[in-house]
Amino acid sequence: MLPVRPVPELTAHLGFWLRMVSNHVSQAFATKLAGREVTVAEWCFLRALYGKAPTPPSRLAEEMGMTRGAITKLADRLIAKSLVTRKASDDDGRAQTLALTERGTAIVPDLAALADRNDAEFFDCLAPDERETLERLLKSLAQRSQMTAIPVK
């Protein structure tokens, strides 16, 4: 029989706690969005287009850190929901642009309010300085590891 080496408990790992909190926060938000028939990925897409002129899918893919194929799939779903339009670019008829419809533009502030409420449910228990510290630390970790893609899952 091999000697058994001591192994730390799962809860001894910071990543365990980070994932636990992240999963709960994300799932609660996904549930809220599902009531509006929008996924987290679709919300991120809508927010990325909000307030912008018609945008080429390639630029959106770059900004969101996603593949063009993923952007196309999301766009197709949102077009089917009448939240996004796709049309030929004014500058180059072969190129396409994506833009929010009136309905898409109108829904973004409501979805942002859901995101704010979700944050409040989980993080209002923190003192303002604790929340600022948590945000600063998470942003610092993301920056150091060059995490730039928008987390949509």
Rank of each mutant, 00 (worst) to 15 (best):
Y50V: 00
G35S: 11
T67I: 02
M64T: 04
L49W: 08
E42S: 05
C44M: 13
L74C: 04
R47P: 01
T67L: 02
V40L: 15
A80M: 13
L33T: 10
A106N: 03
E102S: 04
W43R: 11
K81L: 11
I107F: 00
R77A: 14
V108H: 10
Y50Q: 08
K87M: 10
L74S: 03
Y50E: 08
K87V: 04
G51K: 11
E63Q: 08
L98D: 03
R94C: 08
D92A: 09
P54I: 01
S89I: 11
D92G: 03
A88Y: 10
V108F: 10
E37Y: 14
L78S: 13
L49E: 12
T39G: 15
L49A: 06
T67Q: 00
V108T: 13
D110I: 15
D76V: 02
R86V: 06
V40T: 12
Y50A: 13
G104S: 12
E63T: 08
V108S: 14
D76A: 03
S89D: 14
R36Y: 13
Y50H: 13
S82V: 04
M66A: 04
A34G: 07
L83P: 03
R103H: 12
I79A: 10
L83G: 00
V38S: 00
S82Q: 11
S82C: 03
A53V: 10
S58Q: 12
D110P: 11
K73M: 12
T101I: 04
T39Y: 15
E63F: 02
K52S: 03
P109D: 06
I71R: 01
K87L: 11
T85H: 01
Y50D: 09
L98P: 05
T55Y: 00
G51P: 07
D90K: 07
R68C: 04
M66H: 02
L83C: 04
T101H: 05
T39A: 15
L49R: 00
V40W: 13
S58L: 10
D76K: 04
G104F: 06
G93Q: 05
Q96G: 09
T39H: 15
D92R: 02
M66C: 04
L49N: 10
A48Q: 09
C44F: 03
D92F: 12
M66I: 00
T72H: 02
A88M: 13
E102A: 06
G93D: 12
E102I: 01
I107Q: 00
A34V: 06
G35D: 12
L60W: 00
E42V: 01
A99Q: 08
A75S: 15
R47V: 02
D110S: 15
A75V: 02
R77Y: 06
V38E: 04
L60I: 01
T72V: 03
